[in-house]
Design a protein around this nucleic acid. Structure first.
Lengths: 167, 167
DNA sequence: CTCAGTGCAAATAGTTTGCACTGAC
DNA sequence: GTCAGTGCAAACTATTTGCACTGAG
């Protein structure tokens, strides 16, 4: 059970790890064990995550492969710079998702289970650009989150409601 | 010069102040000097604002009409509950705008001057509902922010660029 | 061998909370 | 008179930063 819907992938020439190494070298930044441990962990699965969740997935303090919290934050910012991750904020905490190799999309946010569901819609971008043109606004990006209740939670609620009626 | 575009108003029967008093009484909450000072200040103009900006607009500490910071935060949350304000987060700080008496709309966010520009588009909500239906998602609301550069800043940049070319 | 990267501890910033006093009802 | 609301100071939380040490190039 994943916390995101799959949208398939986009053709990319390099793995996220190679892409990141290329990015580092192009900027004269160093390829360190911590940075590699983090790219590998982050791109080992496609779920959305925050800094805490990422830390929990890493080896504990003292063990090889462990990375300190400040470095996790610093490196997440580098991933965003490198175009590997997209960052957005939910309930006051930063949440990250794969950007490199994934098509542009938006999100449903289920207020029951707090999951993020991805969806893709071309008409949306077209409409966005049209509205922006009308208002003489030069678009670089957008952020759309549709709040509501996902199918699973709606089903669960319906069931519990009918159960209540049976009493 | 305002930091929002005007969208006109919607017909409402009560003033924000009266609406808030009604809300407080319906909940058995008390109508205090601080709460009234805050409704009046908040609805005296239509700009977006954050907690700090609101505090600056109030009389200084010691003077009548002053409200402490914790109470400002507590009361802003009440305004949101009462449906008077909408809250959203920008660069890690809470920003508020009038909800009561204003039509549903979305925002352009200019990354140059950091202003929020409002716009209204019916097709957007229609498209949102259509996409949600396709994904069996029960919509309650959405949040859309289109990032980019507003007309004023685009003009300013063009000017400075041509000025640079003249050197 | 040099300087960018790291871990640690401490700082930051916006917001929230515990508590004793005050004032609306 | 009672209890919700307030101001104060202190707590909180996610994130960021200063600094001395370490290791990549």
């Amino acid at each position: 059970m994943s916390d995101t819907e799959s949208l398939g992938t986009v053709q990319v020439s390099l793995s996220p790890r190679d892409r990141f190494v290329e990015f580092l070298q192009s900027r004269g930044m160093r390829v360190t064990a911590q940075r590699l441990a983090l790219v590998d962990q982050v791109f080992s699965h496609h779920e959305h995550f925050d800094a805490d969740q990422l830390m929990e997935q890493l080896p504990k303090s003292g063990q090889t492969g462990h990375v300190s919290r400040p470095t996790v934050y610093r490196t997440l910012a580098e991933f965003v710079d490198a175009g590997l991750l997209r960052k957005f904020v939910l309930n006051g905490r930063a949440v990250y998702e794969h950007d490199y190799g994934y098509p542009q999309h938006d999100h449903f946010h289920c207020t029951e289970c707090n999951r993020l569901l991805e969806f893709e819609n071309k008409g949306l971008v077209a409409l966005r650009d049209e509205v922006a043109r009308e208002h003489h606004f030069r678009v670089t990006s957008h952020r759309l989150i549709i709040n509501g209740v996902c199918q699973d939670c709606a089903r669960a609620k319906r069931k519990s409601r009918s159960r209540m009626n049976m009493i």
